[in-house]
């Protein structure tokens, strides 16, 4: 999958998983931080995002440090998914 398409898919999946009903995919900047700034997510949302990666992309991330790096922004999530697909 192209990164642009993957980013759009991730936006829709995040809106659904985190109940961000007031947002549309166009409102989300894929380069903006997911936590504190940007979408202003918190630790419970981080759990939901880890589940999202597992459920939709078959990716399990056990290392907390690696999780923090992957979940910086939608772009970093997309990059990790693409890298994971290539490795697989």
């Amino acid at each position: 999958m192209e990164k642009t398409a993957l980013v759009e898919q991730l936006k829709a999946q995040i809106i659904e998983a985190l109940l961000l009903e007031d947002l549309t995919p166009n409102d989300i900047d894929p380069a903006a931080p997911l936590f504190v700034e940007g979408l202003g997510l918190d630790s419970i949302d981080a759990l939901e995002l880890i589940l999202l990666l597992e459920k939709h992309y078959g990716i399990r991330v056990e290392d907390p440090k690696e999780r923090r790096e992957i979940l910086q922004s939608i772009n970093t999530m997309a990059d990790y998914i693409l890298k994971h697909e290539t490795e697989v």
Binding site: I44, L47, K55
Partner: peptide, 9 residues
Amino acid sequence: QGLSAIPFI
């Protein structure tokens, strides 16, 4: 497996 936290909370 892989249960969402929000409905649990």
